[in-house]
Simulated scan of single mutants.
Amino acid sequence: METRHQHIDRVIETAQSPTAAARSPLAASWRRSIERHGLDPAAVRPVERVDDSALSQRREALDRFLRVAGPKIDQLFGLVGNSGCGVVLTDENGIVLDQRCAAADAAIFQDWGLWSGADWSEAAEGTNGIGTCLTEKRQVTIHRDEHFFLRNIGMSCMDAPIFGPDGTLLGALDVSSARADQTEGFNRLIAATVAQTARAIEADVFRAVFPKARIVTAENEDAALLAIDSHDLVIGATRGARRAFGLEPSGDLKPRPASDLFGREDEARGFEKAERAAVLRALARAEGNVSEAARALGIGRATLYRRMKRLGIGE
């Protein structure tokens, strides 16, 4: 491992290089830490923390997110906890909302500042797994002396962002370890598990937000889920689905027919297409009973027969 002065000098020299930031995401983060956030890699101040009242407010605002994520965090900790790793969940600002670690490691994680209420944003801690993941909105691993602050270079941090049902950033999922024998190869295995768990949390939160919708999963490794209502309109999409289908990147989703996304077009257009879909749904729910389907549509049996003929729907 680098000496104290070697690390500090390397961070400063790299951050000041006119070309390093363009070649390396790590160098770009070090540069942000110094130029944008005004941080000093040699600083020894403790990790900043929000007070209990502010933490409670943040947790309350994200109550559903935390309830849904809890079981997945437990599962992840069950996989990595025996190897000296801790699991951390933050909000979109890098504030730790929840964490898991072995009882024997609790004092160590508290000393590092990986505890509820701690601020691990890049603005507060410089380059680190949580903050850099949130800033760049992508999966990252910050291994030991890739950290900005000298006091953090004993840690390895594997992180993945978690996006909400509206495509906006919800928080970050982190696994951190200070084991001296933890290799970069082992980090890659953990990082893959972290990313998989983050996508599973996204999917569960999405389903919780659209409990009555039909959920369709696209063949995409990035949690691409669509919520489709009873009228076959797409009313929700995860970030992965928004990217896959070219939808609004975040915020409210403009409802559109599911067939428009899936490419299943027929000769019917406009109101005729909608009418045909309505008749087919009514017939399906009535198990083919035309009289019952007509009553459900609020029309007479003879009228329904005429519409079926016009729409090309056989008995």
Rank of each mutant, 00 (worst) to 15 (best):
V205E: 09
D229A: 12
D252A: 15
P211M: 14
D222G: 00
F206P: 07
T197S: 13
A268W: 09
V194S: 00
T183N: 04
K254R: 12
A208D: 15
A192Y: 03
P255T: 08
D181G: 04
L247R: 01
E267Y: 11
L225W: 06
A180Y: 06
T197D: 05
D232E: 14
V279I: 14
A200F: 01
F245H: 07
V279E: 01
K212N: 15
P255Y: 06
G251E: 11
D252K: 15
L225T: 02
R188C: 00
S230K: 13
D204E: 15
R179F: 01
R269F: 07
V234N: 04
G185D: 08
A195N: 08
R239A: 09
I235V: 15
S250P: 00
L233H: 05
A244R: 10
A223T: 07
L253R: 10
G185W: 02
R269W: 07
A286G: 06
R281G: 03
F206C: 08
R243K: 15
L225K: 05
D266S: 12
K254E: 11
K273R: 15
E202Y: 08
A237K: 07
R242F: 04
E275N: 09
G251F: 12
A268Y: 03
G240L: 06
L261F: 02
R256I: 02
G270M: 04
E265N: 11
V216Q: 03
R199Y: 12
E265W: 09
R269H: 13
K254A: 11
A278M: 11
R207F: 06
A218P: 00
P211T: 14
V216E: 12
R276L: 01
R285W: 05
Q196T: 10
G246C: 00
T197C: 10
R269S: 10
R243L: 13
T238M: 08
K212D: 15
A198Y: 03
R264G: 05
R179H: 04
D204Y: 09
A213C: 14
L189R: 01
P257W: 02
A224C: 05
V279F: 02
R269V: 14
E221T: 11
S230I: 10
I235L: 11
N187Q: 12
A244H: 11
D204L: 14
P249K: 10
A274H: 10
Q196M: 08
D260M: 03
F271T: 12
A278T: 13
R256T: 07
E287D: 12
R179E: 12
S259Y: 02
A241N: 04
V205R: 04
I190Y: 01
I228F: 06
A268K: 08
E221F: 07
D252S: 15
A284G: 06
R188I: 00
L225E: 03
E219P: 04
R281D: 06
R179W: 01
E287A: 14
L233S: 05
A278K: 11
L247Y: 01
K212G: 13
D222S: 07
R214Q: 14
F210K: 12
R207L: 10
F262S: 10
I215Y: 08
V209E: 15
A237S: 09
R243M: 13
A224E: 03
R285I: 09
A227C: 11
G270A: 09
V194P: 00
A200P: 00
E287N: 14
G236K: 10
A191K: 00
R207G: 12
L225P: 03
A180Q: 10
E221N: 12
